[in-house]
Design a protein around this nucleic acid. Structure first.
Lengths: 122, 122
DNA sequence: ATCATAAATAGTAATAATTCCTATTATTGT
DNA sequence: ACAATAATAGGAATTATTACTATTTATGAT
């Protein structure tokens, strides 16, 4: 993967937020620094960064979001404010269970817990 | 929700498979029985059935699939054959953990384990 | 430093999944 | 049977994403 100024900028944008941004959000941010950048470039580079394991792609419903956090982790999705919160749960037991019970070789556990986050406590 | 012949057919199709079909798959099946049914009708009815808790919508990557199984359950997604397999894991501990640790009120745990299913054992 | 090669890009067209719109049709309570 | 209105077909519109192509740019070799 050859160096590119734009890919670097895109990576910096993803690394600079905890908001699990969409491609379009990244595109809007990138345009501020590089006015003539195109959305296709953003998509292509996000894919390349994902392929290179520099970022992660997560699916929130039917829309892709990007995450700099490559440690295995899960997400809490608040149904009120839409926030996606990183959490570290214990997937190890789950991996063992599916391996034993279903003869399934797990690579990756993708877990999202939908509910109400602490901001909306009555 | 008023009775409709087409909604009934759509529900029967979803209830008649374990393949977690897409809207288009349901549409193709429905056309056999009801040649003049339209894709919009399929989408509208799948949404209504979901709203009425008669089916569940699950997201496989960025595509919606529909599931008659409304018991809380998880999915194993085989990266080789693409199969989505229903499994019953133990979400209770997870629910307790996020409640206590993150003050998050969980409604629903959506978990997909990506890996290799038993069909591809060497 | 120049140059050649191929990767990266802009801009736009194309695609895929899904939703929206409107005139017509069908269900249902009276 | 009829009126009210939900459901529908068919197609247009929208949204997210990918593909295409001529041009630009990074980079390794001269």
């Amino acid at each position: 993967m050859r160096y590119s100024h734009k890919r670097e900028a895109i990576q910096e944008i993803v690394y600079g937020t905890n908001s699990h941004p969409t491609a379009d959000w990244v595109f809007q941010k990138a345009k501020v620094k590089i006015p003539n950048i195109s959305l296709g470039t953003v998509y292509r580079n996000l894919k390349q960064l994902d392929d290179a394991q520099l970022i992660n792609t997560i699916y929130d419903g039917n829309i892709a979001r990007y995450d700099w956090n490559r440690e295995p982790h899960d997400h809490l999705k608040c149904k009120i404010c839409g926030d996606l919160i990183d959490v570290q749960l214990f997937d190890d037991q789950i991996r063992k269970t599916v391996k034993k019970l279903y003869k399934f070789e797990p690579d990756d556990v993708v877990m999202t817990i939908i509910g109400t986050c602490h901001k909306h406590n009555k």
